[in-house]
């Protein structure tokens, strides 16, 4: 039984300071139990002797310095993975939210993953046919690539992503294919658009969905893409599947990152985003790829809406530096009724 602490000193935004802890490690997973028995998860952001700075994954509402209890589990946040996850739906923290049974995990994997040894990567080369001429003809997508969609608010990026997920295949092969979908801070309508689209085409049976909607706690968004990528890594590198990961919307993810950084009173970089945002985004995007000696692959399509349609905003800018090309949507093309409104000149692959 882990030790319980009732020594919460401070709660500010998504952060909490717990005093007098023993044997707590950096990045360890914890749990807060409120007076009414609700449990919320958290992780250690900083540990200084007996003082643990803890980041909540869920809302801080109702935490009481007197009566709330904190426990630490001695391990970092993991996701129970299994092939049965296909066709299922989870919340941003990896808990099943459809009516299906609990997942019996084959393995528990650390959601942060491990970096791929550059000497053990295989270079992406198999062309994926998406059926979208502006992509296939001019900005080809290959297995193991990360190709973001730079969109602007009001443009049909969701349609494009759903279309790619529906139609993508490698010509002349019949290999196992799966879609992992992570929604971060998007609206219910947008999420249900994806669900319906997957359902109509039958892709839902081959899809794993992680949903953190706009009304779910913002801090949960930090883990949502990591949950999704962990599931994707399991399916790709343990189960030899070709996985397409769709992350939407990276802009909301980056805003959550900024929220936590601001709560920690860190020195901000450009536009208030933390200086380590490049590294943080890279730790997501770089999980796409192929590995030597493994059949499966992870192909990633992150979607981001550029604030004010501005390509030089830190989110699209840093993304562009990490990803291998980009698909840019154009408002003028959309107004002319061109579908999908892919602006081919600034797009690149």
């Amino acid at each position: 039984m882990p030790k319980e602490y009732r020594t919460i000193q401070e709660v500010t935004g998504p952060l909490m300071l717990v005093k007098g802890v023993e044997n707590v490690k950096y990045d360890e997973l914890g749990e807060i139990e409120l007076a009414d028995g609700t449990k919320r998860r958290c992780k250690v952001l900083e540990i200084d002797e007996g003082n643990a700075l803890v980041q909540l994954f869920e809302a801080s509402t109702g935490i009481n310095l007197e009566s709330s209890k904190v426990r630490f589990f001695g391990k970092s946040l993991t996701l129970g993975v299994s092939e049965d996850m296909l066709g299922r739906m989870f919340d941003g923290m990896g808990r099943a939210i459809d009516d299906g049974p609990e997942i019996i995990p084959d393995a528990r994997m650390d959601i942060n993953g491990l970096p791929i040894n550059p000497a053990a990567r295989a270079y992406p080369s198999e062309f994926i046919q998406t059926g979208v001429s502006a992509i296939d003809g001019l900005n080809t997508l290959v297995r193991g690539q990360k190709l973001p969609i730079f969109s602007c608010s009001g443009l049909p990026h969701a349609n494009l992503a759903a279309q790619i997920a529906r139609q993508a295949k490698v010509r002349g092969t019949d290999e196992q294919f799966a879609v992992v979908f992570a929604a971060m801070g998007i609206t219910f309508e947008e999420a249900s658009f994806f669900m319906n689209s997957f359902r109509e085409t039958g892709a839902i049976d081959r899809a794993v969905m992680f949903l953190n909607l706009a009304n779910d706690p913002a801090v949960e968004r930090i883990s949502t893409p990591r949950m999704a990528l962990t599931a994707a890594e399991y399916l790709a590198f343990e189960k030899d599947m070709h996985v397409l990961v769709i992350l939407t919307d990276i802009t909301n993810y980056a805003d959550s990152l900024r929220e936590i950084s601001a709560a920690r009173k860190e020195v901000p970089g450009r536009r208030g985003y933390p200086g380590y945002m490049y590294t943080d985004l890279a730790s997501l995007y770089e999980r796409a790829g192929r590995q030597l000696g493994r059949k499966g692959s992870i192909t990633m399509i992150p979607i981001l809406t550029m604030p004010e349609d501005d390509k030089t905003h830190p989110i699209p800018d840093l993304t562009g530096y990490i990803t291998e090309g980009q698909i840019m949507l154009g408002r003028d093309l959309y107004r002319r009724g061109i579908q999908p409104p892919i602006d081919v000149l600034p797009s690149l692959s």
Binding site: N23, Y26, D27, E49
Partner: peptide
């Protein structure tokens, strides 16, 4: 290297 899991002491 990644410092996850390190703690005082």
């Amino acid at each position: 290297e990644e410092t996850s899991g390190l703690g005082p002491g």
